[in-house]
Nucleic acid binder design. Structure first.
Lengths: 122, 122
DNA sequence: TGGTTATATAACCATAAGGTGATTAATGGA
DNA sequence: TCCATTAATCACCTTATGGTTATATAACCA
């Protein structure tokens, strides 16, 4: 479950509207209406996006009278970052790729290879 | 186009098969057959995944006889990392969230808010 | 009680995503 | 030239995504 959360997190981040929502929430809590305002899209659409973010663990929601303020919950971003970290060597100085390759071959890398049906990849 | 590449990159990373493929490629080039081997899925399916990775700029492909070796091209991961970086404060010491909030309010944060129809978010 | 505001849910639609099997194309070797 | 190998493409299917409108729910206010 925790592994597959990466799926949910990356999928959530793949949408520009959702990234923008996170960006907005970085400056503090906000209700659905407030979050919806900047977009040319209906409130239910925003609610759907929020549900995606919530299921990825990227936001949590409180209760303030009839409002349901959203707050950013960026810990899943840390997990995404952790995953990316493992490839840092590949983008830092993209020339000495050979170096890292050799290094890899000695102390096996990120995720050697998945298995069978429902993969257990990363 | 470059902005929307984040969409493609995150979307590509949202699939465990594709993450596993990248993990495999981290230890060196590989052909399609070789990449397909560990998975319970047909060669065309893998080819599709590779196309997704390629369109996100995450891999490139060469030619070696009838093989089309794939190599990891992790620079887009750097862009993803860059985006995540902006939220680092939120996951490092997830308690003093208030601190970063206040800090945010002074020097406006990542991405204040998007606009209109086809958003120009992040 | 009735009305207003904020949000969620339902039913629907179009398109994209992830598979499949069958076929085609490209290359190298007998 | 014929065959084997590697990979791409085609036609198709099922399910998920991202949006819509219309309706329901929840909480406050009068």
């Amino acid at each position: 479950m925790e592994l597959n959360r990466l799926d949910a997190v990356f999928a959530a981040l793949a949408d520009p509207t959702r990234r923008a929502i996170l960006a907005r929430l970085a400056s503090g809590e906000a209700g659905v209406m407030e979050l919806a305002k900047p977009f040319a899209m209906t409130q239910p659409a925003i609610s759907k996006h929020l549900r995606v973010l919530e299921r990825a663990g990227l936001i949590s929601r409180g209760r303030d009278a009839q409002r349901r303020p959203c707050r950013i919950e960026a810990q899943p971003l840390a997990e995404a970052n952790e995953w990316l970290e493992r490839y840092r060597q590949f983008w830092e100085g993209s020339f000495q790729r050979l170096d890292s390759l050799l290094e890899e071959l000695q102390s096996p890398p990120p995720n050697p290879a998945p298995i069978s049906d429902k993969d257990q990849p990363t």
